[in-house]
């Protein structure tokens, strides 16, 4: 900034005059990172900062479709939204939390097998993990309507072995059906976000050096101890990344609750959608979005602190 002014009094004396060309090159080198950042920063400004500011503004406005909305700093919207819809927040977090745990329980053994045991099948298995992404999210979820239909073989089987009596007793299904119950929504979430868990798990497991397992064995560690003390800690970055990539989008999801759930399974995403499109109460919709963002941010921060994986932050 001050290249043309006289050197400051306390600046260290120049050791030797630097040729102008070299100076220019140095300056150019210094500006390269900023130029490289330009596209990313512009992207963030247009698609993240601008909508955030717009939504923040909307959340403190009052008005109606016919009269227009004006900023009146009506912060009570936040409080009203929270007191009115806190059950939906809790439900969203519980459903996505359970789905995340299920994803981890299903995804970890799978990623472990692909990384260490699959041999030449590894690429094929990875493709199979990603394959569902070739169809749309909506179609995949609709397919579950058929799989879990009341008369479907799956549900008939579950009824025959009386498993649905147990789940109904637990309160996650109703009567002899799976569709339009909490179980269906959680299953849908688990299925739809499973690849987001498997892929990060796989990449971090794949990097674990196989010789460490041998070394652990040489030191008389049982396979279980090896897993507990060597493999699992080394895969922690994958576990954290996977759980975040599953939990965050799952808690804002509304498709699964809409298609597989009923009135008592609606999540916060459904409320936001309905406030925005049906009721046309834009301030409440915006406030709910911000509350959801804040809640997720708080949970994620706590989680990362607890999990202690500095590589991620």
């Amino acid at each position: 900034m001050t290249t043309t002014t006289a050197p400051l009094a306390d600046a260290p004396p120049d050791p030797a005059p630097v040729p102008a060309a070299l100076k220019r090159a140095a300056r150019r080198r210094r500006s390269v990172p900023y130029l490289l950042l330009l596209a990313g920063v512009a992207w963030l400004l247009v698609f993240f900062v601008a909508p955030m500011v717009y939504q923040a503004s909307t959340s403190v406005q009052t008005g109606s479709l016919d009269t227009g909305f004006k900023v009146t700093w009506h912060f009570a919207t936040y409080w009203n939204a929270l007191t009115e819809y806190w059950p939906h927040f809790v439900r969203s977090l519980v459903y996505s939390g359970i789905a995340t745990v299920l994803c981890l329980a299903i995804g970890y053994p799978l990623a472990y097998t692909i990384a260490f045991r699959a041999g030449r099948w590894r690429n094929l298995l990875l493709i199979l993990v990603i394959a569902p992404f070739f169809t749309s999210f909506l179609i995949r979820t609709l397919a579950w309507e058929t799989i879990l239909a009341d008369q479907s073989p799956v549900v008939s089987f579950l009824n025959r072995v009386h498993l649905l009596d147990v789940t109904t007793w637990l309160g996650v299904t109703e009567g002899h059906r799976v569709m339009a119950t909490p179980l269906a929504v959680v299953c849908g979430l688990t299925y739809n976000f499973l690849p987001f868990m498997i892929l990060p798990l796989y990449t971090s497991l794949e990097r674990v050096d196989g010789r460490l397992h041998e070394a652990a064995g040489d030191l008389y560690a049982t396979p279980f101890t090896t897993f507990r003390k060597v493999t699992f800690p080394l895969s922690m970055p994958g576990v954290v990344a996977g759980t975040l990539l599953t939990f965050i989008p799952a808690s804002g999801d509304y498709i699964n609750a809409e298609l597989l759930g009923s009135t008592n399974q609606k999540m916060i995403g459904n409320v936001i959608q309905s406030q925005f499109l049906r009721v046309l109460d834009y301030p409440t919709a915006a406030a709910l979005s911000f509350i959801l963002m804040a809640v997720i941010l708080a949970i994620v921060t706590l989680y990362i602190r607890k999990a202690g994986t500095e590589e991620l932050v």
Partner: peptide, 15 residues
């Protein structure tokens, strides 16, 4: 600046 930005974002009457 933030205040000005937020205030400037009002949604005009739809009609």
């Amino acid at each position: 600046v933030a205040t000005a930005g937020l205030t400037g974002c009002g949604i005009p009457a739809a009609g």
